[in-house]
């Protein structure tokens, strides 16, 4: 948009101009409830790429087979204006029934699952196992030279665990992306 050099000098700047430059970028977790019909994930993802929005993480699965409902959890970033647009644009998609802003609700629980392969022998192998116990990671596969850990928790906890494994023979990581739900007895 305008860089402030265009137009005649001395014109008053509109108080309503949506200047995105000085707005803080925020991180949001959105739960998108959709009809589980062919192409619905492509519609949601296509909206993000087509309009230039970010996706930090994405998870999707059917959650109610009788109603053909799927839940898509998207972690995104943007200025408050962009985040407002994202929600409104998502609701324009015909099979999107509901968009829940988990972050804004302040009552959200967010969890992620990771499978982490670590290889090594001797002291580093013992150290990896010791740290895994602290993080309550489960060993789901083991050989004489490797472990696969299963870890569930908040994303930053998982990232922290991965960082600790790095010098201890980290081989490979697989993460689900964020799942979320709101606290309390109500739905949505």
């Amino acid at each position: 948009m305008s860089d402030g050099t265009s137009g005649a000098p001395g014109n008053p700047k509109s108080a309503y101009f949506l200047s995105h430059a000085d707005e803080e970028v925020e991180r949001r977790t959105l739960a998108v409830l959709v009809d589980n019909e062919p192409g619905v994930l492509a519609r949601v993802v296509g909206l993000f790429s087509g309009r230039g929005y970010n996706i930090d993480s994405l998870t999707v699965a059917e959650v109610d087979a009788s109603q053909h409902r799927s839940r898509i959890t998207i972690v995104t970033q943007g200025t408050p204006h962009i985040l407002e647009q994202i929600e409104a644009q998502l609701l324009r998609i015909v099979p999107v029934g509901e968009v829940i802003d988990i972050t804004k609700s302040k009552r959200g629980i967010e969890r992620e699952l990771a499978l982490i392969k670590v290889a090594g022998t001797g002291e580093v192998r013992v150290e990896a196992l010791r740290i895994a116990e602290i993080f309550r990671a489960r060993v789901i596969d083991t050989t004489n030279e490797s472990f696969i850990f299963e870890l569930t928790g908040a994303s930053d906890k998982i990232s922290q665990f991965i960082d600790l494994m790095r010098p201890l023979g980290l081989v490979e990581v697989s993460r689900t992306g964020v799942l979320s739900i709101k606290r309390g007895k109500e739905q949505g």
């Binding site: 948009m1 305008s2 137009g7 014109n11 008053p12 700047k13 509109s14 309503y16 101009f17």
Partner: peptide, 12 residues
């Protein structure tokens, strides 16, 4: 037109 100079004094 130029959005940052669009109707500066109005309620919208």
């Amino acid at each position: 037109g130029r959005v940052d100079a669009f109707s500066p004094n109005s309620k919208k």
